[in-house]
Design a protein around this nucleic acid. Structure first.
Length: 208
DNA sequence: CACCAGGAATGTA
DNA sequence: TACATTCATGGT
């Protein structure tokens, strides 16, 4: 399985090269984007983030202090704005009360993940995205694209979140840079060949 | 018009 | 545990 996963990685990297994720100016913006992108296209997230930047509140302090009704207006393009405004408030509060980015980076990964999952609005994928892309922890992020990849190539019997995550983490070296690039490449490839028509034609993973 | 996008919480059986 | 429903905007 290790060779299979590395074959997929190599073919994706050969096609697309470095993706330089997460696309954000600061680590705090990574966390904010991770919440905003829940079941939402990245283009819409960018509009919401741009609004927050123009208002000078694209930070934990900014999110924490701003009036929630005003926050809803700024993040409106990202959808689910009633929920996400509350989720962003919860997340900003958590970081401000627990040492923020640099303070939390020193903590144990497993403990950190459990604490992140207690935040209302932060599920497994969002927690893992924060761990990997904001806190530089070697955690593999599983999203809908990753699940579809595993299913279509029949790489695992169990396709629940934890099973797929273990598949990657137990077969690859726990390397932050590798997990960062691998997930980004999966998303890049899926956007190009799994949604647009015709599907799969010319996909670097044909026959893998 | 339908469908979905870098999910999560909540409710039901 | 395993599904179903709800949340909402904007592009294709």
């Amino acid at each position: 399985m290790r060779d299979k996963l590395l074959e997929i990685y190599d073919k994706l990297f050969e096609r697309y090269s470095n993706q330089y994720w997460w696309p954000a100016a600061t680590k705090e913006e990574v966390v904010i984007g991770a919440v905003l992108t829940q079941n939402t296209s990245w283009a819409n997230v960018e509009k919401a983030v741009e609004n927050l930047k123009q208002q000078g509140v694209c930070s934990f302090e900014g999110i924490y202090k701003i009036n929630i009704e005003q926050l809803k207006i700024y993040i409106k393009p990202a959808g689910f704005f009633n929920q996400k405004a509350e989720y962003l408030k919860n997340t900003a509060k958590f970081f401000l009360e627990n040492g923020s980015i640099n303070g939390l980076k020193k903590r144990d990964t497993k403990i950190l993940r459990e604490k992140l999952l207690k935040i209302k609005g932060v599920g497994k994928e969002t927690a893992d995205s924060i761990l990997l892309y904001a806190l530089d922890k070697p955690v593999f992020v599983v999203d809908a694209y990753t699940k579809r990849l595993i299913e279509r190539h029949n790489l695992s019997k169990n396709t629940d979140y934890d099973s797929i995550q273990r598949l990657f983490e137990e077969n690859l070296k726990k390397d932050t840079a590798l997990f960062n690039e691998f997930h980004a490449l999966i998303v890049k490839n899926a956007k190009e060949f799994c949604t647009k028509k015709p599907r799969c034609n010319g996909c670097p993973l044909e026959g893998v």
